[in-house]
Simulated scan of single mutants.
Amino acid sequence: MLKAVIFDMDGVIIDSEPQHARAALRVLNRHDANADYDYCSSFIGSSTKVFTQDIMKRFPLSISLEDLLEEMNLEKKKILKEEGYAIIEGITDLIKKLYHAGIRLAIASSSSPTEIENTVKALHIKKYFTKLISCAHVEHPKPAPDSFLLALKELGVSPQETVVVEDSCFGSQAAKAAGIPCVGYLNPHSGNQDLSAANVLLESFVGIDERFFHNILCRSLGKPVMIADTKRLFIRELEPKDIKEIYQIYKDPDIRQYIPDIDDYLEEEMKKQEAYIKNVYSFYGYGMWGIFSKTSKKLIGKCGIENLEVDGKNEIVLSYLLDTNHWGYGYALECCRAVFTYAKEELDIKRIVAVIDKKNTRSQNTAKNLGMTIEKEIPYKGHDCYLYSIQLD
């Protein structure tokens, strides 16, 4: 269960990395050190102290480490006074949503305690954070895990209850070393950061809420994400243990006549489905999910949306199948409506299509009852089909 989210500050809450780089370059230019922006950005995510230590080794400066560090910090303050704080779009709303959802929040930053304190006060977000952790509070800065381990201790949570948000290579490596799932924020102003240690990459915080972080945590622990809970059904991501039940549904000839790509051998089909479960959910955030009866608790089919090429165009395609014992009771309509709701509210998807065999009158009636309309007739994988579509307004 998600209990806490730990944020980096620079590059995640405020877009400060360009300011820090300009401050460093001003100082280095004054001391005739031939450095560039790429050199400065290579230390994003680490502390100013580590940065200045490298400068002293690399350049022949006639200044002490302590004086250089002081001069660097003064220059950062000067630029901040000139330009103010550049807050990342959507981050304040996200912080408030998480706080009001009962999620404990912390900052674990390579900035100094004073810089962190001044930032949260200036942005009027201090009250939302339980703890403010600086690299000054630990022995080793990022990419060491010390800052995050201290944050876990102060928050009273485990790595299995927490998600980190980072924009830097060092930060994502620190999260991984601490055993905490990490969301890598792709900040274009943070340089060319290697975020391969992150569990998932994110381009914007706009529209994100606690459910997004809950899903990241579930997937990192190998647990299926719950998609919808309807009157008679619940829909969730599939697990490898569900595959044998799915295959039994596939074996029904009434179902196979409309599904062209089912392997005849259980072992081969299981391998394909296991690869699908491992890769597709985490990459897209959606796929084909399992349909379970609330009464029997058993898997009775699959439904969901997938990225497929249809008639030469990339589309988001609705698909479903149900055990024939559950045909004729409105389950298809119930689960597909839940899929549409999830696609619109959680994924912000605007258009969904369905490719339906011209002989499959049951599915055609379901599509019409869902509000989908026929666009045209198309050939699809050796079948004559109708292309249905709907705009999710």
Rank of each mutant, 00 (worst) to 15 (best):
K3F: 10
A4C: 08
V5S: 00
R26G: 10
L28V: 07
L28I: 05
L28G: 02
S42I: 11
F43P: 00
V50T: 12
Q53D: 13
I55F: 00
M56C: 07
R58M: 09
F59G: 08
F59A: 06
E70F: 10
M72V: 13
K77S: 14
E83C: 08
G90I: 12
H100I: 11
R104H: 12
A106F: 04
A106N: 06
A108E: 01
S110Q: 06
V120I: 05
V120P: 02
K121A: 10
L132E: 10
I133N: 02
A136K: 08
A144N: 05
L149D: 09
L155S: 01
G156H: 03
G156E: 09
S158H: 03
P159L: 05
T162E: 01
S168F: 03
C169Q: 15
F170K: 11
A174E: 02
G184Y: 03
P188L: 10
N199G: 14
L201P: 04
V206S: 15
R211C: 13
L217V: 04
C218M: 09
G222N: 11
P224C: 02
P240T: 04
I243P: 06
E245N: 09
I246T: 04
Y247K: 07
Y250A: 05
Y250L: 07
E268K: 15
M270F: 14
V280M: 09
Y281E: 05
S282I: 04
F292W: 08
G304W: 02
I305T: 02
N307A: 10
Y320D: 01
L321P: 02
L322V: 07
H326P: 05
C336F: 03
V339N: 02
E346G: 10
K358C: 12
K358R: 13
N365M: 12
A367G: 02
A367W: 03
E377D: 14
K381Q: 12
H383A: 13
L392H: 10
